Amino acid sequence: MNLRFEGRACYIRNLTVDDAEEMVHLLLRNREYWSIYEPRHPDSYFTPMVQREKIRESVYQARENREYSFGVFEPGTDRMIGHISLYSIKRLPFLSALVGYSIDKASTGKGIATEAVKLVLTFGFEQLRLHRIEAYVSPRNAGSIRVLEKSGMQQEGLLREFLYINGEWEDHYQYALLEREF
């Protein structure tokens, strides 16, 4: 299944095993930058072999309608500048999912993350017919909070000591958007 959604600042498409090398380059470029808000990974994570396996798993998850992983690309190029996923997809009685994303440090502040989130929200609500899409964000991550709010998501609360990141339990805000609000 080939999924591709076009925006003005970026386009997103589902990942294939051919994207593993480009994914490794993206991960290595942002290893320190992303580790501020995400758990650190072992060195083996930053290899084509591991990334190919992760992509294979995401292809399987998409076939099972449980998760969709996309690369975020510069318009008119094959240059990957981020990744975004719609994951933990639940069917009735929930009809919900989570969205998570990371954008290359060199591409932040250009509306790319906001557009990628809006493209995934459109896919989730219009094609997957979800009722609710959620996101979690560190209170320290002002840029990501702006992305979620510009995408129409609303803060619903604070999840205390929610994620264990780099040796610390960290609080996270919970954001959500309902189908009728979309």
Rank of each mutant, 00 (worst) to 15 (best):
S88Q: 12
K150T: 14
R146W: 05
T77E: 03
S35V: 09
N2V: 11
S151F: 07
P139L: 04
G76M: 11
N65V: 12
E168Y: 11
S96C: 01
K105P: 00
S85Y: 13
E22D: 14
D171C: 10
V137I: 01
V137G: 07
P139G: 12
E21W: 13
M80N: 01
F123T: 08
H25N: 12
E149R: 07
R63T: 15
E32L: 06
N14M: 13
G157N: 09
D104I: 04
E181Y: 05
S144L: 05
M80T: 07
T16I: 07
E53Y: 01
I145W: 05
A135G: 12
L92R: 13
G71D: 11
E74A: 13
T114K: 03
Q127A: 09
M49A: 05
A20E: 00
A9S: 13
R4K: 04
E57I: 05
H131E: 03
H41W: 10
E115V: 07
G167K: 10
S107R: 11
R79Y: 15
L128P: 09
E181R: 09
R13N: 11
E181F: 00
I84E: 11
L15D: 10
G7W: 03
N141H: 01
E181W: 14
S102F: 06
P139E: 07
L121A: 12
L128G: 06
S88F: 14
I89N: 01
Y37V: 02
M1I: 06
L28M: 15
P39I: 00
A113D: 05
R31M: 08
I55K: 01
G111L: 05
V137Q: 08
I165K: 10
W169G: 10
Y45I: 01
H83S: 09
P75N: 13
R8M: 04
L128A: 08
L130T: 11
V72I: 15
R8W: 11
T47L: 00
L119C: 15
Q174M: 05
L3N: 10
F94G: 00
Q127S: 03
F162P: 01
I55Q: 00
F5E: 13
R79M: 12
R29V: 06
L27Y: 08
L27P: 07
W169C: 08
T16Q: 09
H83D: 15
L28V: 14
K118M: 03
L92T: 01
N166W: 07
A97E: 02
P139D: 06
I133N: 08
E53D: 14
V50H: 04
E21S: 12
R52E: 12
I84T: 02
R63K: 15
A9W: 06
L163Q: 08
